[in-house]
Amino acid sequence: MGKVIVVTSGKGGVGKTTSSAALGAALAQNGDKVVVVDFDVGLRNLDLVMGAERRVVYDLVNVIQGEAKLAQALIRDKRLETLYLLPASQTRDKDNLTPEGVEKVITALRKAFDWVICDSPAGIERGATLAMRHADVAIVVTNPEVSSVRDSDRIIGLLDSKTMKAEQGERMEKHLLLTRFDPARAERGDMLKVEDVLEILSIPLLGIIPESMDVLRASNVGAPVTIADNKSAPALAYFNAARRLKGETVPLTTPGEKRGFFGKIFGRKAA
């Protein structure tokens, strides 16, 4: 039986889809069988970030409505043969996602894969609550910025009350993935520090992904950053996060970006 992970945040644009794709590809590079499921019905983007946008035939809603078999809707990655994508519907309304339908699909995927990664839409509406509904583990993607931290706090509340685990009286395992972190700005006092966010949200840290051009470059070419440039700082951070997900103990390092002469002089505020 595989593990079901929801990648969620409340706020949009913090890096849920990027992180779903990067972690999925990182886990699949270990030989684990991984499926990444896009729950953002109407605004799908996981297919684009993973470079499979031209191969989408059927989607999650087709499977739920019985118009396609699950196996027909799954798209295998061209680079990693243990990585699959289940796209969201682009044209249908999100009301087509039914709780029963989602449960059936997740149950079937759990049997066939080691990891089922559910990429949640932003917000706290139907799509987001259904994406988290059957999760064993939640990854809360947060930017070191006030509105993102507030929304993450709200989502943590929902994870502890509206999921199957919560309703059965079990504890939902939650991890914080801090994305778009800029060590220089945090050091200067112009960005919330890692410890600040951890103290406020009080859930364990899965990883710190540095703000980086490599992430945009990877999405431009349609590859998870862990495939596009697997030596880059964000890719290494995602690989470490994936190892922690598997239960390994990997020491946490705040990603320090190399600063040039100019950065050394102006990057730090005089004490």
Binding site: V146, G157, G189, M191, D196, I200
Partner: peptide, 18 residues
């Protein structure tokens, strides 16, 4: 530095929202 202000505002707000 503006980060300490962000931190304090969040702590007060979230204490109420929770």
């Amino acid at each position: 530095a503006s980060a300490p202000a962000a931190r304090e505002r969040l702590q007060v707000l979230l204490a109420h929202e929770r």
